[in-house]
């Protein structure tokens, strides 16, 4: 249950990153759930890197269209005003810096803002999909992940141990305990959850970070 509530907490906090008018790409898995918590009055357009702007909700049973899927290969629907384009055009808009925000999952984040989220050596190579392109070029990169792995080991590290997805690419990291920003290779604690202290946070974080002068309570 703790894990479920951690995920819920992360997803809700991540939804507060959305701004009216943003074009947003949500990664596969937990980031996809952010779409369920778009704040009232905030209108965004969701991009799917296989080639669509204007993703709608999942279809009702019996209304699935095999020609209409998101980047996670899930059946979706279209919103009025949506558009389709090729994957080259899609990554043109990503690489060209037209996507305002990408929210993506992570396996490890380093104190300099490096990200690893695509491969565990010794296990199967699945491939990065569009992840490397998105973290290299989206205007803003927000990573969401649980603070520690299932064994309770930190995932926020001095240096990533897994193969990287991008170097110094993370703008903001959101975990169930805290929100960190990355600025020119430095990691700054911006928000802290009400049920954790800075001392406790340092114990479960293998990275060096400073506290923002205006350190705030994490909005949940």
């Amino acid at each position: 249950m703790k894990n479920v509530s951690s995920r819920e907490r992360i997803v809700r906090r991540a939804a507060r990153e959305l701004r009216d008018g943003y074009y947003v790409n949500l990664g596969i898995g937990m980031p996809t759930l952010v779409a369920n918590h778009i704040p009232p009055g905030v209108n965004i357009v969701l991009e799917s890197e296989n080639g669509m702007l204007g993703i709608g909700p999942f279809p009702y049973e019996g209304e699935e269209d095999p020609d209409l899927i998101n980047a996670g290969k899930q059946t979706i629907t279209e919103l009025v005003g949506c558009s389709y384009f090729s994957s080259a055009d899609s990554f043109g808009m990503i690489r060209g810096g037209h996507v305002d925000l990408t929210i993506m999952g992570g396996m490890e984040v380093s104190q300099e803002g490096d990200l690893a989220n695509w491969m565990i050596p010794g296990k199967m190579v699945k491939g990065p999909g569009g992840g490397m392109d998105l973290v290299a070029s989206a205007k803003r990169v927000v990573i969401i992940m649980t603070h520690c792995n299932k064994k309770g080991e930190p995932k926020v590290l001095e240096k990533c141990t897994l193969p990287l997805t991008g170097v110094r690419c993370v703008d903001r990291l959101i975990t169930e305990h805290a929100v960190f920003d990355f600025d020119r290779g430095r990691m700054i604690l911006r928000e802290l959850a009400p049920d954790v202290t800075v001392e406790k946070l340092r114990e479960i974080t293998d990275a060096t970070f400073s506290e923002a002068p205006d350190l705030a309570e994490m909005a949940l």
Binding site: E49, F91, P128
Partner: peptide, 14 residues
């Protein structure tokens, strides 16, 4: 296996 990031793959074909 040659792993190619998705956007790079699309652009290599293009």
């Amino acid at each position: 296996l040659e792993i190619v990031p998705q956007g790079t793959l699309a652009e290599r074909f293009r």
